[in-house]
Simulated scan of single mutants.
Amino acid sequence: MSKRDYYEVLEVSKTATAEEIKKAYRKKAIQFHPDKNPGDKVAEEKFKEAAEAYEVLSDPDKRGRYDQFGHAGVGGASGAGGFGGAGMSMEDIFSHFGDIFGGGFGGFSGFGGGSRSRRHVNRGSDLRVKVKLTLKEIATGVEKKIKVKKYVACKSCNGTGAENGTSYTTCSTCNGSGVVTRVQQTILGAMQSTTTCPTCGGEGRIITSKCKECNGEGVRLEEEVITLNIPAGVADGMQLSMSGKGNAARHGGVNGDLLILIEEEEHPELLRDENDLIYNLLLDFSTAALGGSVEVPTIDGKAKVKIEPGTQPGKVLRLRGKGLPSVNRYGVGDLLVNVSVYIPESLNAEEKKMIEKLSGSENFKPTKSVKDKIFSKLKHMFD
């Protein structure tokens, strides 16, 4: 099932400001909040959908990639395998975006007295890799397996950093909440502020005995083979992402993302212009004059092209559908065959006599209409 447009999800225009996007998300999150819609799976999915849209549109870099490449640019390409969606859990949403509601909403404290912990949730760092692709791989999409060194959760302590995963105690400073609330008296009255607990760093607990395998970090450096399902139509410089495939977080939490930078290998004969491909066809003089049939390279083999008699240099032949697909599946580009004519650089005596004889014919002299056409093209180039 394809994803809805993120702007449509939040009901904002594509020119919406950061503040307008934030207000729109707040409205949607209140409307579909699970505490307000207990047991309503449809509301829960809409709540997650709004959070996913906000996570992309509130980040200038991700929003830019989304505007240019759609869901594929931010890990949401339909049918893209490992790139299929942000995969955000409810806990991820509350940990990432809880503060957007501020104290007036209790930091996602809920409706009707319900409560959710505001304990800080760690997030692992992102990983970045480069993947080189040929034009043929870009045309069809491709599966790549890469080996990366990354931090993974320690199996001995389940990523907690505590011996046996249980050697920790609740932080006495914040009583496990991860935050400290202070009330100050000012000339305007009592002012309340909430900050991250300085004792536990927002984790809500203190390790009493460190895990010997990871020395209390909760993560270990290991190699992992990751399968990348690259969608068709990607471009050089495009960045894809795989949610949760980055480094694991210290002491448990949310994994970072794996960011994949696309590098396009140069083709020996074809040039790329967005979704179109360009080939420079160098014809011999006789074929250009008399016409014929020639073969031109395509991504997946060869194609025959008919040359009409009297074909002029600069003529462009279009082979529809022989280009690259759009990454957003909006169609396929064309192969543009630019015709050039080869003029021999040296001639023997017999060849010179033949050319001199032909040059006397009126058919070998450019007409006024041909001159006008060439001048029009030249003028257009400098307009």
Rank of each mutant, 00 (worst) to 15 (best):
D276R: 03
N275Y: 14
G252I: 02
I262W: 05
N275E: 14
H267D: 09
R220I: 15
A249F: 05
G244W: 01
H267Q: 01
H251Q: 13
L259T: 11
N275K: 11
M238L: 06
N255S: 13
H251V: 04
S243V: 06
G244H: 05
P268G: 05
E223L: 05
H267T: 00
N275C: 12
L282F: 09
K245N: 10
E223R: 09
L281R: 01
L259M: 14
A232H: 13
N255H: 13
M242Y: 12
L282D: 14
L221R: 15
T227S: 14
T227D: 12
A249R: 06
A232T: 10
E269V: 09
L282Y: 09
L240Q: 04
G252M: 02
L283H: 06
I260T: 13
L261S: 13
H267S: 02
A248E: 06
G246A: 03
L283A: 01
N255M: 07
N255Q: 10
N229G: 10
E222H: 10
D273L: 11
T227H: 08
D273M: 12
A232W: 07
L228C: 03
L281N: 01
E224Y: 10
I226F: 09
H251S: 06
L271K: 15
E263I: 06
I260L: 08
L277N: 00
G252Q: 04
Y279Q: 02
G253L: 02
A248F: 02
S243E: 13
G253P: 01
V234W: 00
L277C: 01
G256S: 08
I260A: 09
N280A: 10
I230Q: 01
A249D: 03
K245T: 04
I226N: 10
I226V: 14
I260H: 12
A232Q: 11
G256H: 03
G252T: 05
L240G: 08
E266H: 08
M242R: 10
T227Y: 05
E223G: 07
Q239C: 09
H251A: 07
I278K: 12
P231K: 06
L277D: 00
D257L: 05
I262D: 03
L271C: 11
D257T: 08
A235W: 10
H267R: 00
R250E: 14
G244D: 11
A249K: 04
A232V: 08
E274S: 13
G237Q: 00
P231D: 09
V234M: 01
L281D: 02
D276C: 03
L259N: 14
Q239K: 12
L221A: 14
E263H: 13
E263P: 07
A235F: 12
E263R: 12
L261W: 09
